[in-house]
């Protein structure tokens, strides 16, 4: 950028005049970038003003600036609450599990699907696999609850085929919950998440495969040494973006499938915010928790980016 302007200056002595002339020549570009800037300001930066409520004792009837300021009281209240840390741990764990499963299954699925020779079958499988993505989470929770209930298909199978003496109450065992959440996410999102990898695979230069064929590479070797390395930049970028989302480990699944028996593992930050923030009309506490989440997400993304930079991989910034 800097070098460019120096170049222009060297070539053309009347910089100011040149700038306006240049601007006149590309009004569309300028307008569209201005719109984008405006969009960013309105939808990403202005709402941050709402963070002020975290430092107030916010009461809905009054204006934002007529509130009583309480400094860091709400954060203190937040950090004094044991449930908050429990919820934070659960969110982090479920987020990480989801992230790992998300990548393994989506990439694996894309690789396998790519090897399917018959076009019709490939399209058919792909379509079916991404259909669940369009179901709302509420429907999905109902399905999961049903499938795992005492007289659901899983228990029927375990009792009639595997000979379990009695039905397993899947929602009364702490050990199962995170895996139920992870599996449900896999079921719902794998097909959808694989699409971007399938697209990236089509962009790989066919010469590479032809060369490998000449050298006598097997299908598996082509997958291992050509497809996967070619996907590496895509994977890294998506990984960095998704690391920031680790603390958004879902809401509906945990809110609806959780219960008192397993609340130690099922309660996540968003449910905590609902219980202690919105339900108590303590919007300030909810905002404080939201800020905390954002800060953690920022740290995670920056760390991930830093590591990517060090290892010479593709990165966000």
């Amino acid at each position: 950028m800097a070098t460019n302007s120096v170049n222009i200056e060297e070539l053309k002595p009347h910089k100011k005049v040149k700038f306006w002339a240049e601007a006149k020549r590309q009004p569309f570009l300028l307008i569209s970038s201005a719109l984008l800037l405006l969009y960013g300001i309105i939808f990403y930066y202005l709402p941050v003003v709402g963070w002020l409520t975290a430092f107030q004792d916010y009461k809905p009837a009054k204006g934002l600036l007529d509130q009583q300021w309480v400094g860091f009281d709400k954060f203190v209240k937040l950090f004094e609450n044991e449930t908050f840390f429990l919820a934070f741990r659960n969110t982090l764990c479920m987020g990480v599990i989801n992230l790992v499963f998300h990548f393994i299954t989506a990439i694996g699925f894309a690789l396998l699907l790519n090897e399917v020779r018959i076009f019709i079958v490939k399209k058919f499988v792909q379509t079916i696999s991404y259909m669940p993505h369009f179901l709302s989470w509420i429907i999905v929770t109902a399905i999961v609850r049903d499938v795992l209930s005492a007289d659901g298909i899983v228990n029927e199978f375990l009792m009639k085929i595997c000979g379990n003496p009695q039905a397993i109450d899947f929602f009364a065992e702490k050990a199962y919950f995170w895996w139920i959440v992870a599996f449900t996410n896999v079921w719902k999102e794998t097909g959808w998440n694989a699409i971007i990898y399938l697209a990236a695979i089509t962009a790989i230069d066919p010469c590479l495969y032809e060369a490998a064929d000449m050298d006598g590479a097997s299908r598996f070797q082509k997958m291992r040494y050509i497809t996967l390395p070619s996907l590496r930049p895509t994977i890294m970028i998506l990984l960095l973006i998704n690391i920031g989302n680790v603390l958004n480990a879902g809401f509906e699944l945990q809110y609806i499938l959780g219960n008192d028996v397993i609340s130690d593992v099922s309660k996540i930050l968003d449910v905590f915010i609902l219980d202690w923030g919105i339900s108590q009309f303590d919007f300030s506490l909810g905002t404080a928790a939201g800020i905390f989440k954002s800060v953690i997400a920022l740290i995670l993304v920056c760390t991930g980016n830093f590591i990517a930079k060090k290892t010479g991989d593709e990165r966000l910034f």
Binding site: D57, K77, T83, D275, W276, Q280, F281, D282, L285
Partner: peptide, 16 residues
């Protein structure tokens, strides 16, 4: 009772 008082906070915690 809401969590804006000490008693309300205790009440919510007791429930939890």
């Amino acid at each position: 009772m809401k969590t804006d008082t000490k008693g309300g906070t205790a009440w919510n915690k007791m429930g939890e």
